[in-house]
Amino acid sequence: MDRNYNLKYNDSCIKLFEFIKMLYDGDVELNAVINMLSEGGHFNKARTHVTLNKYLNAMKIFGIDIKKVNGKYKMLSSLYKFDFDANDIKSINILTNFLDFLSDGKHKNNLKSFLRNLEIRFDENARYLMAEYQGRSGFFPAELLEKVKLCAQYCSAKRKLEIVFESDGEEINLLCSPLEYFYEHNDVYLRVLGNNGSRIYEIPSGKIIRVQQLHSTASRQAIATTVVYKIKNRLAKNYNLRDWEVLEGIDADGCKIIVNKNEDFNQLLHRLMRYGKECEIISPKFIKEEMINMITKTLDNYKT
């Protein structure tokens, strides 16, 4: 120890907190902690195991829960706790339930790690509230989890698919490359790229009749077609742009000219139908014609 009291510190204290830092960063190998404790010659290596046990006991008595799993020390509860209330635990549960519906990858892993870091900071009350939620049904439909697994498998295999699905009462046979899947409006959607690379399809899993995985490798190179439309009158004042829409301009009549990229054409057409006379597709020509066809087919329902 330093003779100057203003600079004097306790090496055991430093080592203990170093160990805790290691535990916060992830599971700790026995060897790693022994090496850390032996560094600097402050500890007799032969006695390091005894010291470690004494540290572990001090931490347990203090209230830090540490378990040894497969030769690694794992921190189950933190040095300090967050003050989470019922509202926070509800939010944590929504996020935890949503994990099952996310595509594998860095975003899912980052959320998992965030939730783990929160969980180790739970106090007794938070643990109790969390346990209560575990007995309840989740926030999202569990019966869709099988579909999530299937979609995940199609996406991870990175092979082209031949999908037969139902759209507006018709069976569509589509050669495509799977891109990703997502959960929205109580269904799981498989997002695929059409074989020519210019059209994105978002197929509700409930509409898929059959899927065949082909041997050829999936393509991810999209040359997406953009759709331009005009939003008119009162709707123009209130229209909220989606993430995939860009406002190209406002014409002399106050109409908004919107450019849409990557929205499933079928879903887009149905959505724009909803706007009635207050929306008009400008380009491309084939989408404009599909819209006219949809209106004509709807009108045909009223022919006597």
Binding site: T51, F62, L79
Partner: peptide, 15 residues
């Protein structure tokens, strides 16, 4: 023999 008093005190200080 059971625990490190220094470690325990350090944790209490922190808390």
């Amino acid at each position: 023999n059971l625990m490190s008093f220094t470690a325990y005190k350090a944790l209490l200080f922190f808390s």
